[in-house]
Protein backbone atom coordinates (compact mmCIF):
# COMPACT_ATOMS: atom_id res chain seq x y z
CA UNK A 1 0.00 0.00 0.00
CA UNK A 2 1.44 3.40 -0.85
CA UNK A 3 1.25 6.28 1.58
CA UNK A 4 -0.87 8.31 -0.83
CA UNK A 5 -4.04 6.35 -0.27
CA UNK A 6 -3.78 6.25 3.52
CA UNK A 7 -5.93 8.88 5.14
CA UNK A 8 -3.58 10.20 7.77
CA UNK A 9 -4.78 12.58 10.45
CA UNK A 10 -3.78 13.83 13.85
CA UNK A 11 -0.75 13.91 16.06
CA UNK A 12 0.58 10.93 18.02
CA UNK A 13 2.98 11.58 20.90
CA UNK A 14 5.16 8.65 21.93
CA UNK A 15 5.81 8.93 25.67
CA UNK A 16 8.87 7.35 27.29
CA UNK A 17 8.47 5.30 30.43
CA UNK A 18 11.33 4.27 32.64
CA UNK A 19 11.49 1.26 34.86
CA UNK A 20 14.14 -0.77 36.64
CA UNK A 21 17.27 0.42 38.39
CA UNK A 22 17.76 3.68 36.47
CA UNK A 23 14.25 4.73 37.49
CA UNK A 24 14.90 4.03 41.16
CA UNK A 25 13.24 0.61 41.04
CA UNK A 26 9.74 1.77 40.17
CA UNK A 27 8.02 2.59 36.91
CA UNK A 28 7.75 6.23 35.94
CA UNK A 29 8.25 8.67 33.11
CA UNK A 30 11.22 10.18 31.44
CA UNK A 31 10.36 13.74 32.42
CA UNK A 32 10.82 14.99 28.85
CA UNK A 33 7.77 12.96 27.82
CA UNK A 34 5.39 15.62 29.09
CA UNK A 35 7.27 18.33 27.21
CA UNK A 36 6.72 16.29 24.04
CA UNK A 37 3.06 15.89 25.00
CA UNK A 38 2.71 19.67 25.34
CA UNK A 39 4.38 20.08 21.93
CA UNK A 40 2.06 17.52 20.36
CA UNK A 41 -1.06 19.12 21.83
CA UNK A 42 0.04 22.53 20.59
CA UNK A 43 0.85 21.25 17.10
CA UNK A 44 -2.53 19.48 16.96
CA UNK A 45 -4.37 22.60 18.13
CA UNK A 46 -2.65 24.74 15.48
CA UNK A 47 -3.54 22.24 12.78
CA UNK A 48 -7.07 21.77 14.10
CA UNK A 49 -6.62 18.02 14.51
CA UNK A 50 -6.74 15.59 17.40
CA UNK A 51 -3.81 14.57 19.57
CA UNK A 52 -3.23 11.08 20.96
CA UNK A 53 -0.48 9.55 23.04
CA UNK A 54 1.17 6.15 23.21
CA UNK A 55 3.23 4.34 25.78
CA UNK A 56 5.24 1.23 24.93
CA UNK A 57 6.32 -1.52 27.32
CA UNK A 58 5.29 -4.64 29.15
CA UNK A 59 1.62 -4.39 30.04
CA UNK A 60 2.05 -4.51 33.81
CA UNK A 61 4.25 -1.40 33.59
CA UNK A 62 2.35 0.59 30.96
CA UNK A 63 -1.25 -0.08 31.98
CA UNK A 64 -1.02 1.73 35.35
CA UNK A 65 1.05 4.53 33.82
CA UNK A 66 -1.56 5.11 31.14
CA UNK A 67 -4.09 5.95 33.84
CA UNK A 68 -2.19 9.18 34.39
CA UNK A 69 -3.48 10.34 30.99
CA UNK A 70 -7.14 9.83 31.73
CA UNK A 71 -7.42 13.53 32.64
CA UNK A 72 -5.38 14.91 29.74
CA UNK A 73 -6.84 16.48 26.63
CA UNK A 74 -6.30 13.58 24.23
CA UNK A 75 -8.36 11.64 21.76
CA UNK A 76 -6.81 8.35 22.78
CA UNK A 77 -4.07 6.85 24.87
CA UNK A 78 -2.60 3.77 23.27
CA UNK A 79 -1.18 1.22 25.66
CA UNK A 80 1.22 -0.74 23.48
CA UNK A 81 1.89 -3.85 25.51
CA UNK A 82 3.72 -7.12 24.96
CA UNK A 83 5.86 -9.41 27.09
CA UNK A 84 8.77 -8.88 24.65
CA UNK A 85 8.63 -5.17 25.43
CA UNK A 86 9.63 -5.63 29.06
CA UNK A 87 13.09 -4.20 28.33
CA UNK A 88 13.79 -1.55 25.76
CA UNK A 89 15.24 -2.72 22.45
CA UNK A 90 15.32 -0.74 19.21
CA UNK A 91 13.92 -3.73 17.30
CA UNK A 92 11.04 -4.24 19.73
CA UNK A 93 10.10 -0.56 19.80
CA UNK A 94 10.37 -0.10 16.01
CA UNK A 95 8.26 -3.16 15.25
CA UNK A 96 5.57 -2.30 17.79
CA UNK A 97 5.36 1.35 16.79
CA UNK A 98 5.34 0.60 13.07
CA UNK A 99 2.24 -1.52 13.70
CA UNK A 100 0.64 1.13 15.90
CA UNK A 101 1.21 3.75 13.20
CA UNK A 102 -0.44 1.47 10.64
CA UNK A 103 -3.44 1.22 12.99
CA UNK A 104 -3.72 4.81 14.24
CA UNK A 105 -2.64 6.48 10.95
CA UNK A 106 -1.26 9.71 12.42
CA UNK A 107 0.06 12.50 10.20
CA UNK A 108 2.63 13.56 12.80
CA UNK A 109 4.51 11.46 15.34
CA UNK A 110 6.20 13.46 18.10
CA UNK A 111 8.90 12.16 20.48
CA UNK A 112 10.96 13.68 23.28
CA UNK A 113 14.59 13.79 22.02
CA UNK A 114 15.90 11.34 24.63
CA UNK A 115 18.81 8.92 24.28
CA UNK A 116 16.28 6.11 23.75
CA UNK A 117 14.54 8.02 20.97
CA UNK A 118 17.93 8.67 19.33
CA UNK A 119 18.37 4.91 19.37
CA UNK A 120 15.19 3.78 17.59
CA UNK A 121 13.25 6.67 16.04
CA UNK A 122 15.60 7.15 13.03
CA UNK A 123 15.21 3.43 12.22
CA UNK A 124 11.43 3.61 12.60
CA UNK A 125 11.31 6.60 10.24
CA UNK A 126 13.53 4.75 7.76
CA UNK A 127 11.13 1.79 7.73
CA UNK A 128 8.46 4.17 6.49
CA UNK A 129 10.88 5.89 4.05
CA UNK A 130 10.83 9.03 6.17
CA UNK A 131 13.42 11.13 8.01
CA UNK A 132 13.11 12.09 11.66
CA UNK A 133 13.33 15.86 12.06
CA UNK A 134 15.34 15.61 15.24
CA UNK A 135 15.98 17.77 18.30
CA UNK A 136 13.53 20.50 17.32
CA UNK A 137 13.64 23.75 19.31
CA UNK A 138 10.45 25.39 18.02
CA UNK A 139 7.44 24.64 15.85
CA UNK A 140 6.02 27.49 13.76
CA UNK A 141 2.98 27.67 11.49
CA UNK A 142 3.25 25.57 8.37
CA UNK A 143 4.33 23.58 10.28
CA UNK A 144 7.95 24.63 10.15
CA UNK A 145 10.33 22.87 12.53
CA UNK A 146 13.37 24.72 13.84
CA UNK A 147 16.61 22.79 14.43
CA UNK A 148 20.02 23.95 15.61
CA UNK A 149 23.09 23.71 13.43
CA UNK A 150 26.69 24.09 14.55
CA UNK A 151 25.73 23.38 18.16
CA UNK A 152 23.45 26.38 18.37
CA UNK A 153 25.40 28.91 16.29
CA UNK A 154 22.77 28.75 13.53
CA UNK A 155 19.09 27.88 13.26
CA UNK A 156 17.64 25.91 10.35
CA UNK A 157 13.93 25.81 9.45
CA UNK A 158 12.74 22.43 8.13
CA UNK A 159 9.56 21.36 6.41
CA UNK A 160 8.35 17.84 5.83
CA UNK A 161 7.69 17.07 2.15
CA UNK A 162 5.22 14.49 0.83
CA UNK A 163 2.20 12.74 2.31
CA UNK A 164 3.98 10.26 4.55
CA UNK A 165 4.15 10.38 8.34
CA UNK A 166 6.18 13.30 9.65
CA UNK A 167 8.45 12.24 12.55
CA UNK A 168 9.66 14.95 14.92
CA UNK A 169 11.61 14.85 18.19
CA UNK A 170 11.65 17.87 20.51
CA UNK A 171 14.65 19.19 22.42
CA UNK A 172 14.70 19.14 26.22
CA UNK A 173 13.32 22.33 27.72
CA UNK A 174 11.73 23.61 24.50
CA UNK A 175 8.16 23.04 25.61
CA UNK A 176 6.86 23.27 29.15
CA UNK A 177 5.60 20.09 30.75
CA UNK A 178 3.17 22.17 32.84
CA UNK A 179 1.54 23.40 29.62
CA UNK A 180 -0.06 19.98 29.04
CA UNK A 181 -3.79 20.57 28.67
CA UNK A 182 -6.31 18.78 30.81
CA UNK A 183 -9.42 17.06 29.54
CA UNK A 184 -10.23 13.43 29.10
CA UNK A 185 -8.82 10.54 27.13
CA UNK A 186 -9.97 7.13 26.05
CA UNK A 187 -7.49 4.39 26.97
CA UNK A 188 -7.04 1.85 24.16
CA UNK A 189 -5.07 -1.37 24.30
CA UNK A 190 -2.87 -2.26 21.38
CA UNK A 191 -1.23 -5.67 21.19
CA UNK A 192 1.53 -5.71 18.55
CA UNK A 193 2.57 -8.94 16.81
CA UNK A 194 6.07 -9.62 18.07
CA UNK A 195 8.35 -12.56 17.74
CA UNK A 196 11.49 -13.08 19.82
CA UNK A 197 13.48 -13.67 16.62
CA UNK A 198 12.80 -10.07 15.54
CA UNK A 199 14.76 -8.72 18.49
CA UNK A 200 18.43 -8.97 17.67
CA UNK A 201 20.00 -7.18 20.64
CA UNK A 202 20.14 -8.33 24.27
CA UNK A 203 20.25 -5.49 26.80
CA UNK A 204 21.26 -5.88 30.43
CA UNK A 205 20.33 -3.87 33.50
CA UNK A 206 21.57 -0.27 33.66
CA UNK A 207 24.43 0.42 36.07
CA UNK A 208 26.47 3.31 37.40
CA UNK A 209 30.25 3.49 37.62
CA UNK A 210 31.97 3.31 41.02
CA UNK A 211 30.40 5.38 43.78
CA UNK A 212 30.65 9.13 43.37
CA UNK A 213 33.10 10.92 45.63
CA UNK A 214 31.92 14.44 44.85
CA UNK A 215 28.33 15.56 45.04
CA UNK A 216 28.04 18.55 42.74
CA UNK A 217 24.30 18.66 43.26
CA UNK A 218 24.80 19.91 46.81
CA UNK A 219 27.37 22.61 45.94
CA UNK A 220 26.08 26.18 46.33
CA UNK A 221 28.81 27.60 44.08
CA UNK A 222 30.27 25.90 41.00
CA UNK A 223 33.09 27.02 38.73
CA UNK A 224 32.81 25.04 35.50
CA UNK A 225 35.49 24.81 32.85
CA UNK A 226 35.22 24.00 29.15
CA UNK A 227 37.41 23.38 26.16
CA UNK A 228 38.36 27.06 26.03
CA UNK A 229 40.94 26.24 28.72
CA UNK A 230 43.04 24.72 25.93
CA UNK A 231 45.38 22.43 27.89
CA UNK A 232 45.35 20.39 31.05
CA UNK A 233 48.15 22.49 32.59
CA UNK A 234 45.96 25.58 32.32
CA UNK A 235 43.39 24.06 34.69
CA UNK A 236 45.35 25.55 37.59
CA UNK A 237 43.88 29.00 36.97
CA UNK A 238 40.29 27.77 37.33
CA UNK A 239 41.23 25.63 40.32
CA UNK A 240 42.57 28.76 42.01
CA UNK A 241 39.39 30.65 41.20
CA UNK A 242 37.26 27.82 42.58
CA UNK A 243 39.32 27.77 45.74
CA UNK A 244 39.05 31.53 46.22
CA UNK A 245 35.27 31.27 45.83
CA UNK A 246 34.94 28.15 47.97
CA UNK A 247 33.39 26.52 44.92
CA UNK A 248 33.34 22.99 43.50
CA UNK A 249 35.05 22.56 40.16
CA UNK A 250 32.94 21.10 37.35
CA UNK A 251 33.48 20.70 33.61
CA UNK A 252 31.94 20.21 30.20
CA UNK A 253 32.24 16.85 28.51
CA UNK A 254 35.42 17.36 26.42
CA UNK A 255 37.42 18.08 29.60
CA UNK A 256 36.31 14.75 31.09
CA UNK A 257 36.64 12.93 27.74
CA UNK A 258 40.29 14.00 27.69
CA UNK A 259 40.73 12.68 31.21
CA UNK A 260 41.71 16.12 32.54
CA UNK A 261 39.04 15.92 35.22
CA UNK A 262 37.16 12.81 36.40
CA UNK A 263 33.80 12.07 34.79
CA UNK A 264 31.96 12.62 38.04
CA UNK A 265 32.65 16.35 37.58
CA UNK A 266 30.88 16.44 34.22
CA UNK A 267 27.74 18.56 34.06
CA UNK A 268 25.10 17.85 31.42
CA UNK A 269 22.71 15.30 30.00
CA UNK A 270 25.20 12.45 30.47
CA UNK A 271 26.56 13.77 33.75
CA UNK A 272 25.29 15.68 36.76
CA UNK A 273 22.31 18.01 36.86
CA UNK A 274 23.08 20.90 39.18
CA UNK A 275 21.18 23.92 40.49
CA UNK A 276 23.66 26.00 42.52
CA UNK A 277 23.27 29.61 43.63
CA UNK A 278 26.07 30.52 41.25
CA UNK A 279 27.37 28.72 38.15
CA UNK A 280 30.40 30.36 36.63
CA UNK A 281 31.02 28.94 33.14
CA UNK A 282 34.54 29.49 31.84
CA UNK A 283 35.29 28.75 28.17
CA UNK A 284 32.10 26.74 27.68
CA UNK A 285 30.14 27.26 24.45
CA UNK A 286 26.74 26.24 25.81
CA UNK A 287 25.69 23.19 23.79
CA UNK A 288 22.22 21.94 24.73
CA UNK A 289 23.62 18.77 26.32
CA UNK A 290 25.55 20.99 28.72
CA UNK A 291 22.75 23.50 29.30
CA UNK A 292 20.24 20.87 30.45
CA UNK A 293 22.56 20.09 33.34
CA UNK A 294 22.96 23.63 34.68
CA UNK A 295 20.20 25.91 33.49
CA UNK A 296 18.49 25.56 36.84
CA UNK A 297 21.28 27.58 38.49
CA UNK A 298 20.03 30.71 40.21
CA UNK A 299 22.70 32.95 38.69
CA UNK A 300 24.81 32.06 35.67
CA UNK A 301 27.95 34.00 34.80
CA UNK A 302 29.67 33.15 31.52
CA UNK A 303 33.16 34.08 30.37
CA UNK A 304 33.72 33.39 26.67
CA UNK A 305 35.74 35.06 23.93
CA UNK A 306 32.98 34.53 21.36
CA UNK A 307 30.14 37.08 21.66
CA UNK A 308 27.87 34.69 19.72
CA UNK A 309 28.46 31.69 22.00
CA UNK A 310 25.08 30.12 22.87
CA UNK A 311 25.98 30.17 26.59
CA UNK A 312 25.14 33.89 26.60
CA UNK A 313 21.59 32.92 25.71
CA UNK A 314 21.05 31.68 29.25
CA UNK A 315 23.68 33.64 31.19
CA UNK A 316 22.53 36.38 33.57
CA UNK A 317 25.90 38.07 33.48
CA UNK A 318 28.30 37.80 30.56
CA UNK A 319 31.89 38.70 29.86
CA UNK A 320 33.19 38.60 26.30
CA UNK A 321 36.91 38.20 26.67
CA UNK A 322 39.95 36.03 27.07
CA UNK A 323 39.58 33.74 30.07
CA UNK A 324 43.36 33.81 30.57
CA UNK A 325 43.09 37.52 31.42
CA UNK A 326 39.71 37.58 33.18
CA UNK A 327 40.03 34.51 35.42
CA UNK A 328 43.34 35.45 37.14
CA UNK A 329 42.11 39.04 37.58
CA UNK A 330 38.90 37.75 39.16
CA UNK A 331 40.78 35.42 41.52
CA UNK A 332 42.95 38.35 42.63
CA UNK A 333 39.93 40.59 43.16
CA UNK A 334 38.12 37.97 45.25
CA UNK A 335 41.16 37.41 47.44
CA UNK A 336 41.48 41.13 48.19
Amino acid sequence: MSDQIINRAGVLVVMEQKSGAAAGGKAGWNRMSFEALAAGQKLAANLGVACSAAVVGAEEITAPLAQEFADKKLEAVWVVGHALLEHYTADGWCTALEQLIAEAKPQYVVFPHTYQVRDFAPALATRLKQVLISDVTAIHDGPVFVRQWMQGKLNADYRHAGDGVCFVSVQAGTFRADAVESGSAEVKQFAPQLDAAQIRTTPSEPFREAAQTVDLTAAPVIVSVGRGIGEQDNLAIVEELAQALGAELAASRPICDNGWLPMERQVGSSGQTVAPKLYLAVGISGAIQHLVGMKGAKTIIAINKDPDAPIFEIADIGVVGDLFEIVPALTRAIKQ
Partner: peptide, 9 residues
Amino acid sequence: LEDGWFQHV
Protein backbone atom coordinates in the same frame (compact mmCIF):
# COMPACT_ATOMS: atom_id res chain seq x y z
CA LEU B 1 22.33 6.32 29.15
CA GLU B 2 21.20 9.63 30.61
CA ASP B 3 22.36 11.09 33.95
CA GLY B 4 25.54 9.00 34.32
CA TRP B 5 23.98 5.55 33.80
CA PHE B 6 25.32 2.86 31.46
CA GLN B 7 24.14 -0.45 30.09
CA HIS B 8 25.71 -3.45 28.38
CA VAL B 9 24.11 -4.71 25.18
